[in-house]
Design a protein around this nucleic acid. Sequence first.
DNA 1: CTGAAAGCGCTTACAG
DNA 2: CTGAAAGCGCTTACAG
Lengths: 342, 342
Amino acid sequence: MYVTGHTRRQPSIRDVASAAGVSYQTVSRVINDHPSVKPATRERVNRVIEELGFRRSATALALASGRSRNVTVLTANTTHYGHASVLRGVEEAARKAAYAVGVGVLEADDEQAVAAALQRAGDSAGGLIVIAYDPVGVAALAAVDSEIPVVGVVETPDHEPPPDRPWVWTDDHQAAYDATAHLLALGHRTVHYVAIPSSTCRLSARTNGWRRALEDAGAPVPEALQGAWGPGSGHEAGLLLAGDAEVTAVLCGNDDLALGVMRALYQAGRSVPGEVSVVGFDDAPYSAYLTPSLTTVRLDFTGLGRAAFDLLHGVLTEATPVAPHSAAVPELVIRESTARPA
Amino acid sequence: MYVTGHTRRQPSIRDVASAAGVSYQTVSRVINDHPSVKPATRERVNRVIEELGFRRSATALALASGRSRNVTVLTANTTHYGHASVLRGVEEAARKAAYAVGVGVLEADDEQAVAAALQRAGDSAGGLIVIAYDPVGVAALAAVDSEIPVVGVVETPDHEPPPDRPWVWTDDHQAAYDATAHLLALGHRTVHYVAIPSSTCRLSARTNGWRRALEDAGAPVPEALQGAWGPGSGHEAGLLLAGDAEVTAVLCGNDDLALGVMRALYQAGRSVPGEVSVVGFDDAPYSAYLTPSLTTVRLDFTGLGRAAFDLLHGVLTEATPVAPHSAAVPELVIRESTARPA
DNA sequence: CTGAAAGCGCTTACAG
DNA sequence: CTGAAAGCGCTTACAG
């Protein structure tokens, strides 16, 4: 069989219209499920659509209608488990709603780079979801033009989001409180804390939850250590902590940090959980298989992503009232890395 | 300050044109860097563009020109380190070229689902990048309409890709060979293997590299165990392996599998690397911080993603000749999980 | 219930 | 070097 190099053009609504013996306007009504089309006509048009393999052009639709069935998620990171899972949740919900999803990564947090990322995203997207777990994300969320629909995936906020700009989060504060309380209940005198980068200048909800639990129990409140996102910075913090004989329990802002801390403790000859208990945040896929397996707070990132999309979809279509909401309840998963103090 | 609720429409090239006192056609020439525009005119237009904050509409551009400055990557998984890193690499290169990137996840591998994913992706993208590390991805790559530009991110192939459909890969075969040879050189009689899901019916390049190294050394070739992607399946395989006293060295298709195997070995009371050596593939961020830290093959997934985009960009613009190519050389990273047999 | 017109914001020939 | 026309594939009023 010989095929010419010529690409057969995709059929347009006009092609469908002439093949079905109607005006292209009627075809438009059919593909938009407009009520006022005679059933027989509708059926005939649908048959032709099927035969010709017609697919409505998303770009023409976007240009003509001004709406774009595309959302893009802006994030500072795509490989970290939490961020990647949020993206996955967004994609899942978007797929169900027949939306396309784009990704933009926020490389640097200078104003220019953020502005550029925002513009690129705004060019193609009808709406934005920005993951604001870190300073770059927060800056981006704040810099979004007021005309473009956006929802933020944020840390537990301490104030209401602006009405036109919903947020989505899981209750970090309570989760950190619970994890700290668990350690205290085991008999530890206090709990040290290695923080992930705070998204804002003020203290994060996790930090506050940890501190509150300590205060409520009348335990001393040690100074929190500031970590980054990866295990390397957990390792550095762990080295510091390992040198302090007072340290018997460490709460970490995420599992990567906890992993680094455990490694440092091991290198310093302090056993986990024999001498020191360690708790993480996230429940990354690897955490259950570490030795000792990691006690951690399971966060439903995927559910968060789905919620973010649903919210955005709501503001995009104006069908649903938009309300800020906290999705999914975190759950403390107790494994081998926590025990009573020696 | 009072602001009306009315959205000020984005300026179009006509707005720019009238403000600059030229025709909109001239504006089009300026934004497209067309050579034949008098420098003075160009400068004036550019000034107006600046003043008005004009941004060319990506969707109008796509509709009018037929080209879409958007690529979408199709993948069965977004959270696994390798897949996420490829995506990250694509985004990085796309950003440099001012392209937008979309993601589509391949949920199920039945024909319908793949076809649906393909259609959705094709609707918005000018080109596709499909990650074909697993059966779903392979099916998707094969099902892409011949008219749409696509590049596959694949396992080391055993034949040339079709000329119009470039692939990108890293040399798995050599990497598996090296890792196996390392274990053999340490004095192990043979090396067992836990495989990731093969993308095809035939054996994967990793499996072949492992087998070849064994054969070249005259070592017995045990049957490979079939794993999935996550640590859970590595754990299952590890339980099997742990029961066999002959097993002293295990090569795993990825780090997650290796983690699961190490956990199983630990539970069975067999020490790593004292009694059994374990090697992974990927060099995930956590691998260096495990105890024992994991010997593994570092793969440049991000570079692979960048290469995939560059290739696609080449076929999209027809500026660069497209050639299949192997990006980045894998590197064996020797850490604590491997040692001489007891 | 159905059709003819105008327009979304650009680009691609075609003129001058 | 610059401008007026037609068209990309749809939708949104406006007629009938």
